[in-house]
């Protein structure tokens, strides 16, 4: 049974009668998506919708243009993003339920009752270069060539990726002598990976949110990750360094969460300072 084989009106009828709060459309026509959102905004259908994610196929369409078309608002980097519990129906096939919440910064308000729904637009997966289709030696070689910040972020992509990183990078992780949390000044804190070869690699530095330029605070290049039980905001600096942004009161949580995550990723056999 393929939903897209049904006549268009029947598809609409099926959607209208759906009551689940979260919906993921793997590929969708942009006009259909905008119509979908407008029907929700006008209260015609999908009353319980809380979160909608679509993957767009076209490379010509910009994500911010679509968000503008549906009059989406953006939660700036100073505020906590919307989170939604992961619906159980999408986790049935996994052995262990994925309990990580969905985190999103873009939302639309339904004016009639001020109900808020999150909307996330992502590009369609690049089926031409699925990493899983590479020979396993090539997968390892690619991971070998990634910097630690890249590996750190890549480990959040999926649980199986984290597992692959842990197993393939064992040698690299064993060569780590210590992990340093360097609070060198009140503006920023550095997280350094120190190798036995005395090479030190800063994998991220944390910067207080209030020190960021207010004009830049609304930028959409921030992304949030669920790091060992705590939602942390990240962005890249102009030099593509990984930056963690936080409020002063979050400092302890941030360090503890990153510390716990690093233990789960690279192990606890090195020193942590």
């Amino acid at each position: 049974m393929k939903l897209n084989k049904y006549p268009y009106l029947v598809q609409n009828e099926i959607f209208d009668n759906m009551s689940f709060p979260s919906l993921f459309l793997l590929s969708c026509d942009i006009s259909k998506f905008i119509e979908f959102v407008n029907r929700w905004k006008s209260g015609e259908a999908y009353q319980n919708l809380e979160y909608l994610k679509i993957r767009i196929v076209s490379h010509d369409v910009r994500q911010d243009e679509i968000l503008n078309a549906i009059e989406a608002k953006h939660i700036d980097a100073q505020k906590t993003p919307l989170t939604h519990p992961l619906p159980r129906r999408y986790t049935e096939y996994t052995k262990q339920p994925n309990t990580d919440p969905i985190i999103n910064h873009s939302y639309v308000v339904r004016e009639s009752d001020n109900r808020v729904a999150s909307f996330l637009i992502a590009k369609f997966w690049n089926y031409q270069m699925k990493l899983s289709k590479y020979p396993s030696l090539a997968q390892n070689e690619i991971l070998d060539n990634m910097s630690f910040p890249c590996l750190f972020l890549f480990s959040f992509v999926s649980k199986s990726m984290k597992k692959l990183i842990k197993s393939s990078q064992l040698q690299r992780f064993k060569s780590i002598h210590s992990v340093e949390y360097d609070c060198c000044d009140w503006l920023s804190h550095y997280f350094n990976i120190c190798y036995q070869s005395r090479i030190k690699e800063t994998f991220t530095y944390a910067q207080k949110k209030e020190t960021e330029n207010r004009d830049k605070a609304n930028r959409t290049d921030h992304f949030s990750l669920y790091v060992s039980g705590y939602i942390i905001d990240f962005r890249f600096s102009e030099y593509k360094s990984l930056v963690t942004t936080f409020h002063p009161y979050e400092k302890e949580h941030i360090i503890k969460s990153i510390h716990n995550y690093l233990i789960s990723l690279i192990g606890d056999y090195m020193e942590y300072h």
């Binding site: 060539n145 990634m146 890249c150 992509v157 990750l225 990240f234 593509k240």
Partner: peptide, 27 residues
């Protein structure tokens, strides 16, 4: 392999997922 690894530089987890064709668990 180095070129592929370099292409992940400066990308968020969502962008990496798109680049390497890795769906989220619920997708």
């Amino acid at each position: 392999c180095k070129t592929v690894a370099n292409s992940a530089k400066g990308k968020s987890t969502e962008e990496m997922r798109e680049l390497f064709g890795i769906p989220e668990p619920w997708e």
